[in-house]
Computed example of a mutant assay.
Amino acid sequence: MEAPMQVSILGTGLMGSPMAIRLRRAGYPLTVWNRTSGKTAPAVEAGARFAATAAEAVAGADVVLVILENGPVVERVLFEDGVAGALAPGAVLVDMSSISPEAARLHHDRLAALGVAHLDAPVSGGPGGAEDGTLAIMVGGEEATFAKARDLLGVMGRPTLVGPPGSGQLAKLCSQILSATAIGALSEVFVLARRYGADPAMVRQALRGGFAESRVLEVHGDRMLRRDFEPGGHVRTFVKDLRTAMTIAQGQNLSLPLAELAYDLFARFERSGGGDSDISGLLQQTEGGSVPSL
């Protein structure tokens, strides 16, 4: 009988924790590490093994999932905290963080030189999608590596191999642009409805199922109506991704006016103190104190 795949997760925050719990429920032997060790508690309670250091966590792992805050943090953990050197040749590292495509390609090449396979596989769907196993998982890398990790990723959502290294991160940036423009438009729709005297909740209900239907209308529309701005996705992280998308567009001599406007709106919200809000909190800026709160 083939030995079960040994899996490690580096990062058990808003996304990593529910992903770890799903993997344990699916029967995968799992080791977890997080810089703030207390955040590993839910995964450990689900049967995961706690590791005191990132390097300890990946020792002997067949597949390592990384879901950390940003590119510099991923770089530091992989190449300064001893993870790359502790990975066994033949292991697969799946970076599910949101970092730049260029950084993903560089990490791929540096790990390949050590005999370690790499996929960039950022996700969309928020903590709820991580809990339900319905994440959109956008993957960049080689087909053979994707084949090794596909079933494991399938426990957490719907993995799609987009293209070569870095392609998963590019797809995530496209997702962020679409989400940003939709959330901005939705906040304006709700403010317009309220100003005209219509009930925003009933407007949303009327739109459901038509061409305006979307996960943004479903999930973030509900959050806006309930004024629940506790972060499922932080504005500061969203702005970081949009900034990366704008940099790439500029490098390609592309003008993306809607994306630029959405970036400006969210960047202004972050500067005004909204960085720790959920992205649906943009509604507060759109209201601008000029209309009654929803």
Rank of each mutant, 00 (worst) to 15 (best):
G210Q: 06
R226G: 12
D132I: 07
I183Q: 00
F229N: 03
S293V: 05
D95Y: 13
S37P: 07
E188V: 08
V235S: 02
G221D: 09
E213F: 01
R194T: 15
L242T: 12
M96V: 12
L173F: 14
A88C: 15
S8P: 14
V77W: 13
G133D: 03
V73P: 13
L23H: 13
V7C: 07
H220V: 03
E80W: 05
A136R: 08
A201Q: 09
G128H: 14
Y28H: 12
I137F: 15
P89E: 11
V189S: 15
Q176M: 11
M5Q: 14
V116N: 15
M156F: 02
L111S: 02
L217M: 08
R271W: 00
Q284D: 00
G129A: 02
A103M: 05
A249E: 01
L186H: 00
E45W: 14
C174E: 15
P18A: 10
V219S: 09
V77H: 10
G251P: 14
F146M: 04
L119G: 03
A144S: 09
G251S: 15
D109M: 05
L173H: 12
D109S: 02
Q252D: 05
M1G: 01
V162F: 12
P101T: 08
A57H: 13
I99P: 02
V203E: 10
D264H: 04
S179T: 01
E56K: 08
V83R: 11
R35G: 09
F79K: 03
R35F: 03
H220P: 14
R158A: 08
G197K: 04
G168K: 01
T36D: 05
V64I: 14
R25L: 12
G60N: 08
P4E: 10
G274N: 01
V239D: 02
T53D: 10
V162L: 14
T134I: 12
L258P: 12
V191R: 08
T286K: 11
L186I: 11
L173R: 09
V64A: 15
P42A: 04
L207P: 09
G129H: 00
L207A: 02
L14F: 05
G197V: 10
M224E: 06
L282H: 08
L87C: 11
A117T: 00
G197Y: 00
A171F: 06
S293A: 05
A259V: 01
G289Y: 05
Y263P: 08
T244A: 14
A43E: 00
A185Q: 08
V74A: 03
A121V: 11
I99N: 06
A193C: 06
G11K: 14
A46I: 13
I21S: 00
G157S: 06
E56I: 05
T244R: 08
V44R: 03
R22H: 04
P165H: 02
A51K: 14
R25W: 01
L242S: 07
A149L: 02
D120E: 05
V94C: 07
E56P: 02
G47E: 09
E2L: 05
S290L: 12
P29S: 14
L170Q: 08
I99Q: 07
Q6C: 10
E80I: 08
L114I: 13
P101M: 01
L192T: 11
G288C: 06
A41R: 15
G221M: 03
A149G: 08
S17L: 09
G166V: 05
T181G: 03
E69N: 07
S280F: 07
S280H: 13
M5K: 15
H234V: 13
S167W: 08
V74M: 07
I137N: 13
G126C: 00
S179M: 01
